[in-house]
C-alpha cells in the first residue's frame, strides 16, 4: 500500500493500467467491442462473464498476444498497445494461462528461474566473459526464487519435473513462475479452473496474499462466482464482447443486466448462451 502522499504525487487516482475502447474481431466474430477498464494500483479486479464473453481476449490484448483493432492500452503513461509480449513482460506485467502452460520436462526450480530470466542482466557472451558476475547474479536470483518456493510451499518439489505434479500443484507452480517476474500487475486466467474446493481455497488464499502482502495489482478471470465475490474489490462483467457492468461485488450481483446475462432473459427473446 502506498502512502497517501505518494499517491497524491502520482496523481491521486491515476490508473495503473488503462484499457480504453479496445475492440478485437476475428473474421466476423466480434470477440471484444469497445471495452474500457481502468485498473487502480494495488487493487484486485475480477473480470467475469459467460463463456465466449471475451475475457481471455482482453487479457491477451493486455499481455500483447493480440493487438486490438482499435482502442489503446496504457501502462501508467506508457502506450503498450502495439508492444510485443516479451516487452510487456519486461515492463512488469506477468500472467498465467487458462490451460496449464508450464515447461514440461523441466523442474519446478527451472520453471521458476525462467520467471527470473527477465530480471537477469548478463547475456550469452557476457556470461562467458564475466563468469563470476553471472554466477553472483544467479545466486541472488536463486535466493529470491527460494523465497517464492517457501511462500507457495513448494519446498519438497524443487527438483520434480512439473509434468509429474498433481493438477493443483501445477497451477501453483505456474502462479509462482509469474510471480518470479516480480510483476507490478499479475494477470490470472482462471487460476482455479478445474480445481476441487480445497485447492480453490488454497489458491484464493495465495492470490489474496500476493495482492495484500506484496501489493501486486491482480486482474483475475474466474468462473467460480463464490471465489470472485469473496476476494475481489471490484468486478467487471463482460457479455458478448461488451462491458455490461462494473462495480463492487455487491453492486454487480444486483445488476439486472448481469442477472440476465447469466440466467438468460426471462421471456426467451434471444436467450444468451451462458
Amino acid at each position: 500500500m502506498s502512502s497517501p502522499v505518494a499517491r497524491a504525487a502520482a496523481g491521486a487516482d491515476a490508473p495503473q493500467l488503462t484499457i480504453s475502447n479496445v475492440s478485437k474481431h476475428f473474421g466476423g466474430v466480434r470477440a471484444v467491442t469497445e471495452v474500457s477498464v481502468d485498473v487502480r494500483r494495488g487493487e484486485l479486479l475480477s473480470i467475469i462473464g459467460p463463456n465466449g464473453a471475451g475475457k481471455t481476449t482482453v487479457l491477451n490484448m493486455v499481455s500483447g498476444f493480440f493487438h486490438p483493432d482499435s482502442g489503446t492500452i496504457h501502462l501508467g503513461e506508457r502506450d503498450i498497445t502495439q508492444l510485443a509480449p516479451s516487452r510487456i513482460a519486461e515492463l512488469g506485467v506477468a500472467r498465467t494461462f487458462q490451460n496449464i502452460a508450464l515447461f514440461k520436462g523441466m523442474t519446478v526450480l527451472d520453471n521458476l528461474m525462467l520467471g527470473r530470466h527477465v530480471r537477469m542482466r548478463s547475456g550469452v557472451f557476457g556470461s562467458l566473459i564475466y563468469w563470476g558476475l553471472a554466477q553472483r547474479e544467479e545466486v541472488k536470483h536463486r535466493a529470491q526464487v527460494e523465497e517464492l518456493i517457501e511462500f507457495l510451499k513448494l519446498q519438497d518439489l524443487r527438483k520434480q519435473p512439473t509434468g509429474a505434479l498433481a493438477y493443483g500443484l501445477q497451477k501453483r507452480v505456474e502462479l509462482g513462475r509469474a510471480l518470479a517476474l516480480d510483476p507490478d500487475i499479475l494477470l490470472l486466467d482462471e487460476p482455479m479452473g478445474g480445481m476441487n474446493q480445497e485447492e480453490k481455497e488454497d489458491m484464493a488464499r495465495y492470490v489474496l496474499d500476493v495482492n495484500e502482502e506484496r501489493g501486486t495489482t491482480v486482474i483475475l478471470i474466474e468462473h467460480d462466482m463464490g471465489v470472485v465475490m469473496d476476494i475481489s474489490e471490484r468486478v467487471v462483467v463482460l457479455d458478448m464482447g461488451q462491458k455490461i457492468a462494473e462495480g463492487t461485488p455487491e453492486e454487480v450481483k444486483r445488476n439486472p443486466d448481469v442477472i440476465k446475462a447469466y440466467l438468460g432473459q426471462p421471456h426467451g427473446t434471444g436467450a444468451n448462451h451462458a
Binding site: F65, S86, A89, E90, F103, L114, V118, R177
Partner: peptide, 18 residues
C-alpha cells in the same frame, strides 16, 4: 534453459519476457 523454454512453448516463453 531459456532456449529449451522457447522450444517447449514459444507463447509462454514470450510471456516470461524471453
Amino acid at each position: 534453459i531459456a532456449m529449451r523454454a522457447v522450444a517447449n512453448n514459444q507463447q509462454v516463453a514470450m510471456a516470461m519476457g524471453i
